[in-house]
Design a protein around this nucleic acid. Structure first.
Length: 140
RNA sequence: UCAGAUCUCCGGGCUGCCGCGCAUUAAGCGACUGAUGUCGUAGAGCGAGGAAAGUCCGGGCUUUGCCGACACACCCCAGCAGGUAAUGCCUGCCCGCCGCGAGGCGAGCCACGGCAACAGAGACGAGCCGUCCCAGUCGGGACGGGUGAAACGGGCGACAGGGUGGGGGAAGCAACCGCAAGAAGUGCCCUGUGACCUGUGUCGGGGAGGGCCUUGGUGGCGGGCAAGGAGGUGCCUGGCGACAGGCGUCCAAGAGGAAUGGCAGCCCUCGACAGAACCCGGCUUACAGGGGAUCUGGUCUC
C-alpha cells in the first residue's frame, strides 16, 4: 500500500528535492491565490478515473481535461478521519498549502483531487507544503 | 481551614503579515454598458457554540386538504395547583425513597388480574405452637412466640392486559414561492346513476375530472434567509416561586459541496468537548481547567 512506499519515508527524512517553484519573498510573507475549485459530485467522480498518487499524508488524483484552461482542485476528507472540526482543519491546511506554495506546481488543463488523511492535522506546515508540492509535480 | 450541596459565569490572550465570506463607502480607482447600473479592486467594519451536537419534545412559519360537525381508529400524556405561545418543559405543595445535613431522585390516575426466591406448618388468602376467654362436643375470639423483606395486613411505578380523563389532521426549508429551462408520451380503469374531496365512516356542504402503469429528471438563478424577537439585561411593582407588567438599556455570522483560516513572535494556569445551515423555547448527552454567590457538616483559634 501507499504507506509502505519509500517515497513517504524520503520526505520524512528531509532528503526530497526542496526546490521551490515559487520562492518566498525576503520578508517571508506567504503569497498566492486560491485556484479554481471542483465542487460538483460528477466532477469528483470524473477525476477518480485519472492517475492516482498515494502517499502517507494524502492521496492525489489527477485527470487531464485536454484543454488549456486553468487547473482546478477539489478536496476530499472522509468521515473516517474524524468529526467535523477535524475534517475542517485538514481541508483548511491543505487549501492553505496549495495557495501559498503548491498552486504553481499544477499543470493547466488538469483537475486535481486531494484526499486528506489524518496526519495532515499534526505534521509541521513546512513539511506539508514540501510534500504536497513534490507530489503535485510528480517527482519521486 | 477541610469536605460537600445548589445556582451562576468563563472556556486561551495580544501583535504583525497573507488569505476567505458578508454587507458597506460623501460613487476612491479600473473595465463594460445608450442608460438606471454590473463586475473587479482598495479602505474601514463584522464573522461559530455553551453545548452550534443528538434530533428526543414543544411552537413559529410553509404547503397540503373545498370546508364544517360528530364518531371510530391511531399516537401522546397522567398526584394536586399554577407558569408559559406551547410541551413530555418549568415552579410550589403533598406523598414515597436516599442523605447527619444543605439537598437529591420519582416512569406518583382507576379497578381487576398476576407475582414473591430462601427460610417457614402456612405467602395472598389462610393459620403451627402456647396462654386466656366464650362455648364447656364441633367451634369462635384475643394476646404472645418462631421463620422471613413481608404473616387478618400489606408490597411489587424496568409485571401484563383493560378502563377513565385530557391533548393531537398530516408533512416538512431538499417545506414553499417566483423566473428560466426541460418534460408534457402511451395504454388501461372509475366517473352528473356524483368519481373525487386529510386514516376510516356518517351528516351537511362542494364538485368535473380522478386514479394506475411506463418514460425522463434528481438540476440552474433569485426569494424564503437574518437589524434579530414569545431576545438578553438593570431597576421598580405583584407573586413563596416559575413568571407577569412598567421604565431604561444592549444585541449587525448568514454560507450555499458550504467563509471564520495559515504562518511568525511574546505571555499564561499550556488550552477539553467540539463547527452555525429557516428561526425560537426546552430536554438529553460530551467536556481540560478555572472564577463567583448562597448554604450544610466537621476541625482549629479567640
Amino acid at each position: 500500500m501507499a504507506s509502505s512506499q519509500p517515497a513517504a519515508t524520503a520526505v520524512a527524512s528531509g532528503s526530497a528535492p526542496e526546490r521551490k517553484t515559487r520562492p518566498l519573498p525576503a520578508t517571508g510573507k506567504p503569497v498566492g491565490a486560491h485556484p479554481k475549485r471542483l465542487l460538483k459530485r460528477a466532477e469528483f467522480l470524473a477525476v477518480r478515473r485519472g492517475e492516482k498518487r498515494r502517499g502517507r499524508l494524502f492521496l492525489v488524483e489527477i485527470l487531464d481535461r485536454s484543454d488549456a484552461e486553468a487547473p482546478r482542485v477539489g478536496y476530499t476528507v472522509t468521515k473516517k478521519v474524524g468529526n467535523a472540526v477535524v475534517r475542517n482543519r485538514i481541508r483548511r491546511r491543505l487549501r492553505e498549502a496549495v495557495r501559498t506554495h503548491a498552486a504553481g506546481d499544477m499543470e493547466p488543463g488538469n483537475d486535481y483531487v486531494i484526499v486528506g488523511r489524518e496526519d495532515v492535522l499534526t505534521i509541521p506546515f513546512g513539511q506539508l507544503k514540501a510534500e504536497l508540492s513534490r507530489r503535485l509535480r510528480g517527482t519521486r
